[in-house]
Computed example of a mutant assay.
Amino acid sequence: MNFVQPIRDIEKIVEVKKYLGNKNKRDELLFCFGIYTGLRISDILPVKKKDVYNKDVFFVVEIKTKKSRKKNSKYTTKRRIPIVPELKKLLSVYCQNIKDDDYLFKSRQGKNQPITRVRVYDILREAAHECGITEIGTHTLRKTFGYHIYQEGKDVALLQEIFGHSAPYITLRYIGVNQKAIDQAYNNLNKKFKF
């Protein structure tokens, strides 16, 4: 599995949003939903119109791997997610022509099924390629959310709580802050050692 990075450049985020919006409104909403909520793709895909339409917040049951000796044991926690005004605007336009029980990110295959994680990856990979972004994956949306929340206030404890990480260094590594610092250190050394 490749390690993916957040999209750090706001202009690139706008470029990807615009590219997806011109191609498919569902995919544009998917991208925005991910970067505005910070949820995992596995928690985004089951969302239905009735869960989020005309609401200021919604609740999601996150299913994540329990960190214990038992492999593949799972537990659930309910999380309150605010719907920011920009996302609310996108939802109000997109949801006008779909039924309450429809999945937001509905597949064209079969009856009322969400798209797959693989399809999400393909959508993001194509958009990234068109916009000149590398190191993309389904976690890019969640990492982009985290990276920009962190840059706003440098509050790693807040992000640690949002993501459910056990330690601040895990959160910083996850959102690529440590990698950015490492890359900068190498670049600084390169500038210093110009021979």
Rank of each mutant, 00 (worst) to 15 (best):
V4Y: 05
I7S: 03
I10L: 08
I10R: 12
E11G: 10
L20T: 00
L20W: 01
N22Y: 01
E28Y: 00
T37Y: 04
D43F: 06
L45Q: 10
L45D: 09
V47L: 15
K48L: 05
K49F: 09
D51S: 13
Y53R: 12
N54V: 02
K55I: 05
V57E: 07
V57G: 00
V60Q: 05
E62D: 04
E62P: 02
I63W: 03
K66W: 01
K71Y: 08
S73I: 10
S73Q: 12
T76W: 07
T76D: 05
K78F: 04
R79P: 05
R80T: 13
I81P: 07
P82E: 04
E86G: 03
L87S: 09
L87W: 06
S92K: 04
K99H: 04
D100Y: 03
D101F: 11
D101N: 15
D102S: 13
Y103E: 06
R108I: 12
G110M: 07
P114M: 11
I115R: 09
V118C: 07
R119K: 14
D122W: 04
L124N: 02
E126T: 11
A128E: 00
C131E: 06
I133G: 05
I136M: 15
I136D: 01
G137R: 11
H139I: 08
R142S: 04
R142V: 07
T144K: 02
F145V: 02
Y147W: 10
Y147V: 12
I149C: 05
Y150I: 06
Q151W: 03
E152K: 14
K154I: 10
V156S: 09
L159C: 05
Q160L: 06
I162R: 11
F163A: 04
H165G: 09
I170D: 03
R173M: 08
I175L: 13
I175G: 02
N178H: 14
Q179S: 13
K180Y: 00
I182P: 02
I182A: 12
A185F: 10
Y186P: 01
N187E: 14
K191T: 04
K194T: 05
